[in-house]
Nucleic acid binder design. Structure first.
Lengths: 348, 348
DNA sequence: GTGAAAGCGCTAACAT
DNA sequence: ATGTTAGCGCTTTCAC
């Protein structure tokens, strides 16, 4: 291994420790620790002296050392796709909750692969985080239960029920229903759904619920024979590939419902390139109402699942759970259709 | 403080420690530690036995405990604006470098405020990260030097020189020059620049370099009298507000050069709403070439500063520095103009 | 090449 | 209310 002039011991101007604070204040480290943690059992004057010492030495506690015995006051977030702008607003919501507490947020980026995600989650656990927020994980449920047993956990995306962790999800079936009903009201019948490929045993994923909601809503409108599931990746490239396939189809669907905005944008990209007129020749709907969808020239009709509130809710649940609650809670938020300019009356 | 059934001691099924591994392998913890770290001084058979024990116990080292004495094998990233899609590709580039090493990436989200950023950086230091990547920090340089003294640091955005840390930045003056030259070639003379407001003593910020580059390029074309700096926030809302102001100006600029894509999109949003034709009535240029700029209906002309390579370069520099290098390095990447459909010949 | 033991900074029993 | 002390899991001298 290379020379490491930066190894802990040699760091210049070594910072003050709780021992320094205690000595400076003329008290025991235990008392200093109590003041630091804000627990009861210290006289006001003791508190004052210790706090003065902390300020004088610009003391900042070592998070690692705290974590060795107690809490790290840090919450880990597994983010499955940092590119998705929807997650940005979600993180904002999360952060606002924790900012008011003494907890800090640390985000570990992962890819969409299950192995990558599990590795990242393990690493977060190895960091002794006080709690975990898993954003759109693709892990199997028994594995999530296993994690929930080890550490307070909130899962965003996949639906409950769960025994060892909390969930925050949107009512994805309802979201799909809103879309189908709206499209049918516009006269569409050949409505295709872009379904994200996923292991068939992961039955609680949002993609699964959105697909089921689509099928059910189609059935309710007596359009079972028109149900068309197109498999693709919920990514820009995936959507683009699906767009290409759809354009080659005959008869072509009059509307395509992508389960995620990123995928819908991919479909649109292909259509724009091919000169297909939107929505005259093809209506396109997304899901997430990401910031990009709202851009005027994009104006993508989408389902809003209020990422900000999702994040905030997850934050509150996790705080609760860290505080002691052990019964699982499964919050479901109600989605809302946002109609923009990529959808219109069916023509063909 | 509430009950904490999750405190470390009570966690169910407590995981294996290095002591367990050593006992299981029938060796000392010191030897087990050597195998874990992959250092020299262990016989092949010792290595084998210890590795077998680790596997048998599914041992994973405690990162906190490692960090107490040695390294955490974790790198902290201060992200000043998680909403900016440009940063997503930057993180990807960073991550790819670290993924091949044993280092893990942890991102701490901050806001654009200097206080928030400094707090986040402190916290990253309190976590004993092995290194820091600061993305577009607004801290003062002496403070950055201070940080660089404590911990291997790479700063992305602000230009060097620096003594205690490395920098990765784009050649922002050149970027601005490319834009101005291009617009002038199209016949534009009234070219306004949207400058981000920032403390005047932060002279190495990209926004400063881009503004200077704009002024210089204008001067070189004998257009000093046309130099128009419009102050605004480099955000969607900020751009929108500037757009409003520009539309009310007479004579109106024929082109506006926003120093960042997010701001350019805000300007465009206002124009689209107001029915201003782009680029016939107004040419708009951004900076960053973020994924959003490339969307077909947006098609924003922008300066590409290859975020992916910026991230990758920063990762390599940090790895170097953690490995022992102490002379500062200041990498400058060459930007490239990407012409799309928000720019055209000057008409008025 | 291997092991014993000290200690990183802090918290939590347990005294007093 | 305050202090003493034993660790948390690991790395690191320093013996052997």
């Amino acid at each position: 291994m290379a020379v490491e002039p930066w190894s802990a011991g040699q760091r210049p101007a070594k910072r003050a420790t709780i021992v320094d604070v205690a000595r400076h204040a003329g008290v025991s480290t235990a008392s200093a620790s109590k003041v630091l943690r804000g627990v009861q059992g210290v006289s006001p004057e003791m508190r004052e002296r210790v706090e003065a010492a902390m300020a004088a030495l610009s003391y900042r506690p070592h998070r690692l050392a705290r974590g060795m015995r107690g809490s790290t006051f840090t919450v880990g977030v597994m983010l499955s796709d940092i590119d998705n702008p929807f997650f940005g607003v979600l993180i904002k919501g999360l952060n606002e909750v924790f900012a008011t507490q003494k907890y800090e947020l640390l985000i570990a980026p992962a890819t969409s692969g299950e192995d990558s995600q599990n590795a990242v989650i393990d690493s977060l656990i190895d960091h002794q985080m006080d709690g975990l927020v898993l954003v759109a994980p693709r892990s199997h449920e028994d594995h999530l239960e296993e994690i929930g047993k080890q550490i307070p956990t909130v899962v965003i995306g996949p639906h409950g029920p769960s025994q060892q962790y909390d969930t925050v999800s949107g009512d994805d079936r309802l979201g799909s229903e809103l879309v189908v009903d709206y499209l049918v009201a516009l006269g569409h019948r050949r409505i295709a759904f872009l379904v994200n490929q996923h292991p068939s045993d992961l039955v609680n994923l949002p993609e699964e619920a959105r697909a089921r909601g689509y099928e059910e809503a189609m059935a309710r409108r007596d359009l079972t024979s028109e149900v068309t599931l197109i498999e693709g990746d919920w990514s820009h490239e995936g959507g683009r590939a699906v767009g290409q396939r759809v354009l080659e189809t005959y008869p072509r669907p009059t509307a395509i419902f992508a389960g995620a905005d990123v995928a819908a944008l991919g479909v649109l990209a292909r259509c724009w390139e091919a000169g297909v007129r939107i929505p005259e020749e093809l209506s396109v709907v997304g899901y997430d109402n990401s910031p990009t969808a709202a851009l005027v020239p994009v104006s993508l009709t989408s389902v809003d699942q209020s990422g900000h509130e999702m994040g905030a809710t997850a934050g509150r649940l996790l705080l609760d759970r860290i505080g002691g609650r052990s019964e699982p809670r499964n919050e479901v938020l109600t989605p809302r259709l946002v109609v923009r300019r990529t959808t219109g009356a069916a023509h063909s």
